[in-house]
Amino acid sequence: MQVPAHFEYEKAASVSHALLLLARYGQDARILAGGHSLIPMMKLRLAQPEALVDINGLTDELRYLRVSGGELRIGALVTHAQLLESELVGQHFAILHDAEQVIADPIVRNWGTIGGSLCQADPSEDLSAAFAALKGSMVVQGRDGSRVVPAREFHTGPYETVVAPGELLTEIRLPIRTGAAGARHGSAYVKVARRVGDWPVGAAGAAIWLSGDTIADAGIGLAAVGARNFAAAPAEEFLRGAPASTQSLRRAGQLAAEHCQPVPDQRGPADYKRHLASELTVRALVTAMRRARTPAAGRP
C-alpha cells in the first residue's frame, strides 16, 4: 500500500491566509491543489513536505477564465477539464484544446489543475510548452505583493520553478495578439505518447501570425525533448518575416531539433526524440498555419 508520510494539513480560507500558512511552515510546506501530481510523488517519497496548504476551497479567488487587458487570464486553480471545455479558450487558442485532449485522461483532468501542473515542473509537461509557444506569463504572489514572470523564465530546471518558498502561483496570462491589420492567428499542439494518459515521448506546440503570405511572428514550444525554456527560439527567429511556405516550416523543424538536447529514457532514445522534435514542430506549424488561413472554419 502506498500512503504519503505524515504531514500537517491546513485548509486555506483565502489567498492571503494561504500565504500566511506558507510563511508559518517555511520551505517544507507545499501547496495542495488537485493533488494529482503531488500526492503520487508523496506516495513514492519523491516529495515529503511537512505541511500541505490546501487551496481547493479558493475557487472564488483562483478559479476563473476571463479576458482582461488584452490577455486571456487563467486562474491557477482552473482544472484541465475546464480549460478543455471553455469556448473562450478555444476561440483564442486552439493549441490549448489540442494539448488538453492529450493531457492525462478525462478522470485525472477533472481534478488536476493548471497551476499544479506548472508548479510540478516536469520537463515533459505539455502546458509548459503550450504557454511557451504563446509567450505567456505567470503571476506569482507573495506576502509583499505579486510579480509577473515570463513563461520562458518560469522554470529554473527539472521540477524547479521561480516560485519561492512562501509564494503562490495565482494566474497565467496569455497575450491575445491580433497584431497589425489583417494579421491572422492560428495555433496547434501535437504529441506522441506511448499510450493514453502518459507523458509525451515528444510534443510540440506552435502559434503563428500571418500577414498576407508572410509569417509575421511565430512561437514554438517543445516538451520532453530537452528544449531550453520549453521553446525553440532559433526556429522562431528564422520564421519571423519568412514566406508562409511548407519549405519555411520544414526548415524551422530542423532548427528546433538542432537546439534540443533530448535525454534517452524508457520512452525512447535521443535520436528518436530529436526526430520527433523536428517532425512534430512541422506538423504543429502546418496545422497552425492552416487554422490562421481558415479562421471561420474553426477547428478541424
Binding site: K11, I107, W111
Partner: peptide, 13 residues
C-alpha cells in the same frame, strides 16, 4: 459530482 480517482485524493480534500 465529477468522477475522480479516489486513490489520489486525500480524505481531507
Amino acid at each position: 459530482d465529477v468522477p475522480v480517482k479516489s486513490c489520489t485524493v486525500l480524505t481531507a480534500m
